[in-house]
Computed example of a mutant assay.
Amino acid sequence: MHGTDQTARRLLDSSARLSRDPQTEIDWTAPLGDGYGLSPEWSTLYGTAYWDDLTEAQRVELTRHEAASVASTGIWFEMLLQQLILRDMYSVNPADPEFQWALTEIADECRHSIMFAQLCGRLVDVRYRPGRTARELGRAFKTVAAGETAYAAILVAEEMLDVMQRDWMRDRRVEPMVRTVNHIHVVEESRHMVFARDETRQRLAGAGAVRRSVNALVISLAAEIIISSMVGRAVYANVGLDADRAVREAQGNEHHRALLRSSCANLMDFLGEVGLLTPAARRVYRRTGVL
């Protein structure tokens, strides 16, 4: 049994013991309290003059809309990665642990997407989704991405969310339903990240410099699209804020960029280790704020 199958077998065993069911673990009919949607320090406006001008009620409402927007971006990307994994496993022997784990991961992602959708419906009464350009680029990416490009992009999205959600699930200021959703997602995504790292290493074995350079740039651009889609102008408008001012101050928010950099530190180390942190990719990551 090669390395990927060994990892897949361990993850299958872990999933059998530790998988969670949001439909039975969360009371979706329970009334919401007055908690934040995410840790206030993770708000895109925290640390700005605009945040200081907001009332406590406005801050809570803003974080609920931000949480719903991030969750909606998560649904969008999880739908992309399910297609990537299905295509990658199309011709793999169904008896292989790798194949069986891939379908287990897809099942997890389906449950996560439903969970996020239900949470969004409880938090806000509007629909969020990435902009049209991001959706079309995502459509192109899931059509052509393969091998290490697909798995490294999956890892990028999951690693970025992981640190954020670990903070939110432990923060008692955050609404309990949101904390439970984040906890379920963190526990199950930890298995997905192990597999994505293993697959990325395996697919890159023997890859040349040109292939690594092209893939590194594509992955960094995918990361930029994901990050830029998490919280958009509509969030501020729907909370009743001055959207122009909010976008301007959020884009210049060094506190938020510092949090992004800290959340992506381990990811950047891994990408550097496997040769996917090229000069061109570094420029994109710095522009995005994660380096």
Rank of each mutant, 00 (worst) to 15 (best):
E105G: 06
M177E: 06
L217A: 08
E158D: 12
L277D: 06
S190E: 08
M230D: 00
L103V: 08
V186H: 05
A280E: 04
E148Y: 12
V187Q: 13
L45D: 10
A222R: 01
D244C: 00
L62I: 14
A243H: 03
Q165F: 07
R173A: 08
K142Q: 15
L11N: 09
G206K: 04
V235N: 00
A102V: 04
V247Y: 09
L271V: 02
Y236Q: 00
A140S: 09
D96E: 12
A265E: 14
R59E: 13
Q165I: 01
L204M: 12
W101Y: 15
E159A: 07
N253L: 05
R20V: 15
M89Q: 15
W168Q: 03
S220R: 08
A222Y: 03
S213K: 10
M230A: 07
M193C: 04
V156T: 07
V235Q: 02
R179V: 05
R132G: 02
A243M: 02
E78S: 15
A209N: 13
L277S: 10
H2W: 03
V218F: 05
M177L: 12
S19H: 11
L204E: 10
S14V: 11
E61D: 14
Y285C: 02
R172C: 02
L155A: 07
L119F: 06
M164W: 06
A209R: 14
D242L: 02
T149W: 07
S220Y: 01
V218R: 11
V144G: 06
P94G: 10
M169E: 09
A68T: 08
P40F: 05
E159Y: 00
T288F: 02
M115I: 09
K142L: 13
L241A: 06
R129W: 13
E175K: 10
L45Y: 07
L155M: 04
P97I: 10
V210I: 11
A243P: 00
N215W: 04
S113A: 14
M89A: 15
W51N: 04
Q82P: 03
L123I: 06
L221H: 02
R261K: 12
H256G: 01
L45A: 07
T29P: 03
S91D: 15
I226V: 10
L276D: 03
R287Y: 01
L259S: 07
L38K: 14
L81M: 14
E254K: 11
P176E: 07
G208E: 07
H192R: 02
S229M: 01
E273W: 01
Q251A: 14
M160K: 00
R257M: 04
E98T: 11
S190H: 05
G240L: 00
T278D: 01
V181Q: 06
R201A: 04
L45S: 09
L45I: 06
A196V: 02
I225L: 10
